[in-house]
Amino acid sequence: MTIAVGDKLPSATFKEKTADGPVELTTEQLFAGKKVVLFAVPGAFTPTCSLNHLPGYLENRDAILSRGVDDIAVVSVNDLHVMGAWATASGGMGKIHFLSDWDADFTKKLGLDIDLSAGTLGLRSKRYSMLVDDGVVKSLNIEDSPGQATVSAAAAMLDQL
């Protein structure tokens, strides 16, 4: 079953590479008592993710935060080191959270996993964005195609805030 507006996020633990080294972050640590924009990409360093989706959130970071959002995070079914390299290469390290859902635990619990084996990516996350308030989903925007970043783009999220 796919998560829906009004649902509480499931418990999960992510890995994140920070300037101080690797850390573990739970959904409770990330979302409790905060308003957070979370977006997911099928893969770090993939074309749509790196050229469109992520840059929009980095470019609009201040505008999003100015609308009462406490934090922004991107999640992908990639390992900690790939997500850390992506954070560094994109200039996003320290600006938003780059969360590794390395075993797709969180993604599967949300019901937002997708088999992209035909594109040699294997099990990944659908592309989506959501606004989460104190752990509860307030808006959810799922792309019909993993190669698109329109309904889940930063501009669309800004319109919802």
Rank of each mutant, 00 (worst) to 15 (best):
E59W: 02
R67L: 07
R61G: 07
V136E: 06
F14S: 11
T27A: 03
H81S: 15
K138L: 05
A40L: 04
A118L: 14
A85V: 04
E59H: 03
V151Q: 00
D103A: 10
D62L: 06
G94F: 02
T46H: 04
I96D: 09
L54Y: 00
F39N: 13
K108I: 10
W86D: 11
W102K: 11
T120F: 15
H97R: 11
G147A: 10
D79C: 10
L140Y: 09
D105Q: 11
D159S: 14
I72G: 09
A153T: 00
L112E: 09
T48Y: 01
A85K: 07
S145W: 00
Q148T: 08
E28H: 02
G94R: 02
A85E: 14
A40V: 05
V132R: 08
G135T: 05
T27K: 06
K126D: 00
I72W: 06
D7G: 01
S125M: 09
L51Y: 01
A73E: 13
G6W: 02
G91Q: 00
L65H: 04
V74L: 03
D134H: 03
A44M: 06
A44C: 05
V82Q: 14
D20H: 13
F39A: 13
D70N: 13
S66K: 09
A87M: 13
K15G: 14
D144T: 05
L116W: 12
R61T: 09
G21D: 01
F31L: 08
L38I: 09
T13K: 13
C49L: 04
V132D: 11
A149N: 00
Q29C: 02
L116T: 13
N60H: 14
T26G: 06
A63N: 12
I64L: 08
G6M: 00
H81G: 15
R67H: 09
T27H: 06
L54P: 02
N78H: 11
V82F: 14
L121E: 06
G33L: 03
E143F: 03
V151D: 00
V23W: 04
T150E: 12
G92P: 04
A19M: 05
S125L: 07
V151E: 00
V75P: 13
L158M: 07
C49N: 10
N141H: 14
K109C: 05
V151N: 01
V132W: 07
T18Y: 09
K109T: 03
G33E: 04
L110N: 08
A153R: 00
V77E: 07
V37C: 05
T18R: 06
V69F: 01
A12D: 15
K109H: 03
L65E: 05
L161F: 10
F39V: 10
A12V: 11
A87H: 12
D62W: 06
G43F: 08
